[in-house]
Write a protein that binds this DNA or RNA. Structure first.
Length: 189
DNA sequence: GGAATGATGTACT
DNA sequence: GTACATCATTCCG
């Protein structure tokens, strides 16, 4: 796993990230999930992106180098995890929307305060909560550190379904959302 | 300085 | 399907 994986076309990265493992080793324990749903946020022609109007204090890490985490607070209480893509300074990223929980399910359930493997990580806010991702991870490197992405060395290319993104009011029609076909762990809608 | 607005999730009808 | 929690950031005056 190296930075080159992320330092290329953002839509390609969004597709390639499906199937990648997200691993968090915390004092509480280790949690692992497989990415099953992503969304790309682009620099040009994408008014739904936080980076659309250029750098601000909040989105600063979107302009850092590829492989950096961009974590933001959503609706005052949730958190969402993105991976910065493309060349440094461009301001593109991929939102991780859903995971298939693989390890540390009990810890995920405890963090979430509810049971049900199906709904532990089936949404960007749930995923961040279950994996213990917080604003302290904003700006962190996802190639090394306590929170990491890991590409399985081999394996068949997963079958993807593309569609419109969720929860936005602008650029609603762009097909920039990708998910693992037939996975029961994707977010609803 | 003030007001609007979310890259959401849950509960309730 | 609809309602609402909850607050920092952003934009406008």
């Amino acid at each position: 796993m190296d930075g080159a994986f992320f330092a290329r076309d953002t839509v390609e990265v969004a597709r390639a990230l499906v199937g990648v493992l997200l691993v968090h080793g915390s004092p509480e324990g280790r949690t692992v999930g497989r990415v099953v749903e992503t969304e790309a946020y682009l620099a040009e022609g994408d008014p739904a992106s936080h980076a659309h109007r250029g750098p601000t204090p909040r989105n600063a890490s979107m302009f850092a180098r590829a492989g950096t985490a961009y974590v933001f607070r959503s609706y005052g209480l949730h958190r969402c995890l993105n991976v910065v893509t493309a060349a440094a300074g461009v301001g593109e990223a991929v939102l991780l929307r859903a995971l298939e929980p693989l390890a540390g399910l009990e810890l995920m359930a405890r963090r979430r305060g509810r049971e049900g493997a199906r709904s532990l990580c089936s949404g960007p806010g749930k995923l961040a909560q279950a994996m213990g991702v917080g604003l302290e991870h904003d700006g962190a490197c996802l190639l090394s550190g306590d929170l990491r992405l890991h590409v399985p060395s081999a394996g068949p290319r997963p079958k993807l379904a593309a569609g419109p993104r969720v929860g936005i009011s602008k650029a609603v029609d762009l097909p920039l959302r990708f998910r693992l076909a037939q996975s029961p762990f994707v977010s609803r809608s």
